[in-house]
């Protein structure tokens, strides 16, 4: 017997069924279905404008698809809502870094703990006793993440002042602070140099292996996708054109055509 709402490794954690999303006349996603298994790294690839980001936005409730169903941890919904997604354990990073620019690295990551903190307003007013104990307890967790991602030196720096590569790392740290069950990464390596990319790859693998976090990853670098992911889903013009292991997908004729002439 398992507690309800928990999923064993290898079973379906998230299932997207027949999801369609339109913006006025623009069809961003058309009738796409796929699943993500507990514990795997699942890549979502496709040319620009294929609907990858939109798909993540549907999964964590930021966009509402017109059709389809989304099942997470055995619960089926017409659509996700941001608060439900966050409290059920879905975290994400953004294609264009979406950090809290005016706050320090530490505060950004601490903000990721918000849902886990529950001392009320009046304790907060005093910042004493239970409120302080809670603050310290979460600070410890955050320090572990800071350690893990090797960003100790920028702890107190306002994130707006950090170089792009580090910002992406802080964003990952903030997502990890939510202790998510499913982590959505939208082009985590875009705009990075080779060394930063290698670091980020290692972090993603470590997160997956050490914490057992399931990861959905959008990435353009085919080399990275082949190395990291267990299974790949390929989108083009909002439709799914392939789904399978990296090797199988690489040999798929439609995928080759879709990427033909695109230097990746």
């Amino acid at each position: 017997m398992r507690a309800p709402g928990t999923v064993a490794a290898g079973e379906t954690l998230l299932a997207v069924e027949n999801v369609s999303l339109r913006f006025g006349g623009v069809k961003a996603i058309t009738d796409v279905s796929f699943d993500i298994r507990k514990g795997e790294i699942r890549a979502i690839i496709g040319p620009n404008g294929a609907g990858k980001t939109s798909m993540l936005n549907c999964i964590n409730g930021f966009y509402y698809p017109q059709e389809g169903r989304i099942t997470f941890k055995g619960e089926t919904r017409r659509r996700m809502r941001p608060y439900v997604a966050a409290s059920q354990g879905i975290a994400r990073t953004f294609q264009n870094v979406a950090l809290f620019k005016g706050m320090s690295t530490l505060d950004n990551i601490m903000a990721g703990r918000t849902l886990k903190m529950n001392r009320g307003f009046f304790w907060q007013l005093l910042r004493y006793g239970p409120a302080m104990a809670e603050e310290i307890e979460h600070r410890k967790v955050v320090e572990e993440i800071i350690d893990f991602l090797q960003i100790e030196h920028i702890r107190k720096v306002p994130v707006g002042k950090l170089p792009y590569g580090l910002q992406k790392r802080v964003e990952l740290a903030r997502a990890l602070a939510m202790e998510p069950e499913l982590l959505l990464l939208d082009e985590p390596m875009a705009g990075m140099n080779l060394e930063e990319k290698e670091d980020m790859c290692r972090f993603i693998l470590d997160v997956n292996q050490q914490y057992g976090t399931t990861i959905a990853l959008i990435e353009h670098d085919m080399g990275v996708v082949m190395d990291l992911s267990d299974r790949v889903v390929v989108l083009e013009y909002g439709r799914k054109i392939a789904d399978g292991t990296p090797e199988a997908v690489k040999r798929d004729q439609r995928v080759i055509d879709a990427y033909l002439g695109v230097a990746h």
Binding site: N60, G61, F62, P82, Y83, A85, A86, S87, A91, R92, F94, A98, L99, F100, K101, G102, M103, A111, G112, T114, L115, R174, M178
Partner: peptide, 13 residues
């Protein structure tokens, strides 16, 4: 967080 990036704040719960 709401001031700096309300979308990210919302998706963090």
């Amino acid at each position: 967080a709401v001031r700096d990036m309300d979308i990210a704040a919302e998706l963090m719960g």
